[in-house]
Simulated assay, not measured.
Amino acid sequence: MFFSVIIPLYNRPQEIDELLSTLTKQTYTAFEVLIIEDGSTLDAKEIVKSYQDDLDIHYYFKENGGQGFARNYGFERAKGDYFIIFDSDCLIPSNYLETVRNHLYEHHLDAYGGPDAAHKSFTPIQKAISYAMTSVFTTGGIRGKKRNAGGQFHPRSFNMGVSRKVWEKVGGFIITRLGEDIEYSIRIHEAGFKIGLIPTAKVYHKRRTSFKQFWKQLHFFGRARINIYQFFPNTLKAVHFFPALFTLFLIFSVLANLFCSIFAVWCNWLIAIYALLIFIDSFFENKSVKVAFLSVIASFVQLTAYGLGFMEDFWKKIILKKNNKKIA
């Protein structure tokens, strides 16, 4: 089985250097790497060139069109039986491709996704963000499960693979951002292909390096859920409203503390218990008081940023039906 590893890249030369370094250590070596530079002003051409002796690597530069269409550009040029997509801010364990190859031989999948985790080299904030995006105490707990809240597993594009047959029948991404990976997964499901999780095919996903960047990303994710709804209305489930309800509860708690002390006491206790559960769970997972404390912040940022983005576009595009154009 020959793999084509496809990585879109935009102004992140240091990240691609770290990712490519991990690919040189793969125990399974039947693969090529395609780097799609998506109109970057700070390109990684020389960095990619430095790996030519260690990897079967190909570098392409195209006009900026977004990550989804950059992946399509790679699909069109890939030689593999299977196309594997990574985000540029991932580190790949040395046995990743061997794990995927073995699983696909034993359990046929037309497309797959894998989980993410925090690497020991990550900063405390990156570990806290990773916790928030994977914890059972946040909506991140839905990610990396065999079945998500919608009843189907939807791979995420930081760690995702599709067979050449999928590409030939379904094509690639039809939107380039705002939930492009989930939209693509739904079309693969509808075409009758088998999608599954490979639990042991994890990557170390750096995500964002500050809470400000994390806020912007999760606000974008909240808006993306409404964009997906416009393509597939039946995919909007009750669990997708949880961050919005959590955000409204926080707003209510602030108002209760200002105007109604009776409600304020109950609200404060509920928030404190929830924060304590996150702190304890993160401490046992990360063995660090600092990361546990930051995990509480990261979890609240994740839920409120997603919730506000979700409510913003829900109100504009579904309730008011303004600017409700599908975003490609």
Rank of each mutant, 00 (worst) to 15 (best):
T134E: 01
R101E: 15
A70W: 08
N95M: 13
N95I: 08
K120D: 13
Y131I: 03
A128R: 00
C90S: 12
Y112K: 08
D116S: 14
H107G: 03
V136T: 13
Q126G: 07
L97D: 06
I125H: 06
V100L: 13
N102R: 13
G113W: 02
Y73Q: 11
F69S: 05
D110W: 02
N102S: 13
E76H: 13
R71K: 12
S121G: 11
E98H: 13
I129V: 05
I92N: 02
A111W: 02
A111R: 05
F137P: 03
Y73T: 06
E76Q: 15
I92K: 04
D89M: 09
G74H: 06
C90D: 08
L104F: 07
L91A: 09
F137M: 09
F69N: 05
F69Q: 08
I85D: 10
G68T: 09
Y82N: 06
S135T: 05
A78H: 00
D87L: 10
K127M: 02
H103T: 11
H107I: 11
D81R: 09
L97Y: 06
L109R: 06
V100G: 12
S88M: 11
C90A: 12
D87C: 06
R71A: 11
F83E: 05
N72T: 06
E106N: 14
G68A: 09
V136I: 13
A111E: 02
F75P: 00
H107F: 12
T134F: 06
M133W: 01
H119C: 06
H119A: 10
Y82L: 09
R101G: 12
I129S: 01
K79W: 06
M133Y: 03
F75H: 09
Y112L: 14
Y82M: 05
F122A: 08
I129C: 05
I85R: 12
